[in-house]
Simulated assay, not measured.
Amino acid sequence: MQTITYTKGILAELSRTIERMDDTEAEKLVDGMQRANKIFVAGSGRSGLMAKAFAMRMMHVGLDPYVVGETITPNLEADDMLIIGSGSGETKSLLSMTEKANSIGATIALVTTNPTSAIAQLAAITIEIPAQAKAEGTSGKSIQPMGSLFEQTMLLFYDALILRFMENKGLDSNKMYGKHANLE
């Protein structure tokens, strides 16, 4: 199989996966983002990288986002939101973080392949991405290895949340550019 053929296969998988997602919880997440004082994002591995990209875009639209674990991340408070990206919804470090956020009273959102996971049980908002988890890498659900389909779909979903937020606030790319990094 040639590279372009693989690319077409990946795009077809992304399209099928996104078609199976439910928009109801997504709208709840956008509403929660608009109400939150600060928004914290977390994920492990590649899911964490998608969360960092999402935090950057949230900053561009004027939200107050933080990546959990960075040195400049402030404390989480009851009027804040924690958005976790976890395919399994069972990652121990993320579950511990979620339990702490829950005890503080923050709003918790989970983006996952497992809507019945331990983290989902604590989340007010659960977004299911119907893609394979990394442990299912040989199940035939995806041509891609491990959790690639989940992670790619998560990044597209995060970008779609930003577009919806922009629509709600009447923002466009020109307005966002004023918050783009200028020390490059």
Rank of each mutant, 00 (worst) to 15 (best):
F157N: 10
G43C: 09
G62R: 10
V61M: 08
D80P: 04
S15H: 14
T107W: 06
D31G: 14
G87P: 00
I4A: 12
S86D: 07
S86Q: 10
I18S: 05
E128C: 12
S173Q: 14
H180R: 01
K175Y: 07
G89C: 08
T107F: 00
I162R: 05
G105K: 05
A78N: 11
G85Y: 13
S86I: 09
R20A: 07
S47L: 10
D22C: 09
A12N: 14
G69R: 07
A26C: 15
V41K: 09
Y66K: 02
V41G: 14
I104L: 04
M81L: 14
T91Y: 01
D80V: 05
K179N: 07
K134S: 15
S88R: 08
A42G: 01
I104K: 01
L11F: 11
L82D: 10
T5N: 08
G9C: 02
A131P: 06
Y177G: 06
A118T: 15
M176L: 10
V68A: 10
N168Y: 15
D79P: 11
D64S: 13
F150G: 06
Q2P: 14
L161M: 09
T116N: 12
T3E: 06
E19A: 14
S15K: 15
A12G: 07
M56S: 01
F40A: 13
K169G: 01
V67S: 08
G147P: 14
T17N: 11
T91S: 06
I129E: 05
D159W: 00
F157W: 09
S93G: 08
M50I: 15
V30E: 06
T112D: 08
T126P: 02
L14P: 05
L82Y: 04
Y66D: 05
K100F: 12
G9L: 09
G87S: 11
Q121H: 15
L163D: 09
F157C: 08
G45L: 01
L29R: 07
R20I: 03
S86H: 08
F157R: 13
Q152T: 03
G170V: 06
G43Y: 00
S44F: 00
S88T: 03
I162F: 04
Q2H: 11
I108D: 04
E77Q: 14
F165N: 03
V41E: 01
M146S: 05
T98I: 13
Q2W: 02
E184V: 05
L161K: 02
S88E: 00
H180W: 10
Y177Q: 15
A120M: 09
G48F: 08
L183V: 09
I84T: 10
I39K: 01
L94W: 03
E151M: 07
K134E: 13
G87D: 02
K179Q: 03
D23W: 14
A181M: 02
N174P: 00
A118W: 05
A53M: 02
